[in-house]
Design a protein around this nucleic acid. Structure first.
Lengths: 210, 210
DNA sequence: GTGTGTGAATGTTTTCACAGCG
DNA sequence: CGCTGTGAAAACATTCACACAC
């Protein structure tokens, strides 16, 4: 029953969660895989199959209870508690992440920020004090930090990541457009909107002949 | 030979391009699929297979000429010319995109910004004048805009996207965490770093036993 | 010898189609 | 009925392994 769950399935769960949250806000009580599929532009079969990896959440003939399924998914994803994060690198991009609350979500909080530039250390950005990266280990322990968000210059990426891994961090959100190496028990996700732009131009290019 | 090229392959080309640019900067002249694979944490076979969809770029016994392959990939992706973009929505997130140059890349330029808030219209952000969304069609034509970056509040997303599509836009970068509908000849890419966070917690959750 | 390009084999993901429950 | 949950089939993607070019 709980065989190996495909990675792609995990990636789709937050999408399901998002639409369920929206439906809950609209006071929709029940939704079929058909309806969910229309909203998400995907096939009903895929949604049913994906959910079936985790249990039986639907009622035959009716569909899924929106509020209930939402709760279940939040629990499955581990979003039923707070996650504390550290930001490493408070340059241009790091400041944008803090100032504009780019990662602001109820369950996720940036509780500490780090840099290696002595001019930055001691200053505050959006209410968060910038500390010396050397203090990461201590703060991770003291503050219960489990995720690091890396936004340093490309040349310092590997260093920042090694430092995080050394502090026992098992999940890294990497904003730097550079492939970094991590031990295989550490999860790293790259965020780079320019990759998406670069794939779109491929398709735009050959659009003269439609 | 030029059969249908898998979508995943297109998504990997920018990664190859990135590493080739890095190698070129390091004055490396030739690289084998083996070496590229090590840097990118992927198998040499996959790199060779991917590239083979587009032609024969390598030399047996040697590998790939870094500078040449880089040029070829840039051309394949359509990155050998400028792409002009419009930003729709100059709120918190839209300002961050402009101010912090989050999409700054040589080939991509945001040449116009739009909003529907009368208080914003007429102001300048990072040197770009904010126009009324009603002027989008005109400006798209006048400025040769081919890509729209959408950063409006969730409730206005579909409207902003429909407006773009109506103006003949065929590629949309959607920063709003909400699934939107587009005709199937229009390409839309969603950018949402919080989705990545939400998949990481799934894996972190079940990590107590290490 | 070294490393590409590529059919063929393997592995993974999606879709189909239907039994069975409410 | 209508819609879920799910094996089985089809489609798709990755890896293997080797002929061939340098």
């Amino acid at each position: 029953m709980t065989g190996q769950i495909p990675e792609v399935v995990i990636f789709r769960l937050p999408l399901y969660l998002r639409i369920l949250t929206l439906l809950a806000a609209e006071n929709v009580e029940v939704a079929s895989s058909q309806e969910l599929g229309e909203r998400l532009q995907m096939t009903p079969a895929q949604i049913r199959k994906d959910l079936s990896y985790f249990g039986k959440f639907g009622k035959q003939g009716k569909g899924y209870n929106v509020r209930l399924l939402r709760e279940q998914l939040r629990e499955i994803l581990g979003l039923d508690r707070e996650w504390r994060m550290a930001l490493i690198g408070v340059g241009r991009l790091g400041k944008a992440i803090l100032d504009y609350g780019i990662l602001a979500l109820r369950e996720f909080t940036i509780v500490a920020a780090f840099d290696i530039d002595p001019h930055q250390i001691g200053k505050k950005v959006s209410g968060v004090m910038i500390q010396d990266l050397a203090e990461l280990a201590d703060t991770v322990k003291k503050e219960g930090i489990e995720i690091c968000v890396v936004a340093v210059p490309p040349s310092q990426t590997q260093q920042a990541i090694d430092c995080s891994v050394g502090c026992g961090i098992k999940a890294i959100l990497n904003y730097v457009p550079a492939a970094a190496r991590v031990p295989k028990d550490v999860r790293i996700q790259e965020v780079d909107p320019t990759l998406a732009l670069q794939t779109m131009t491929y398709h735009l290019k050959s659009l003269g002949s439609s």
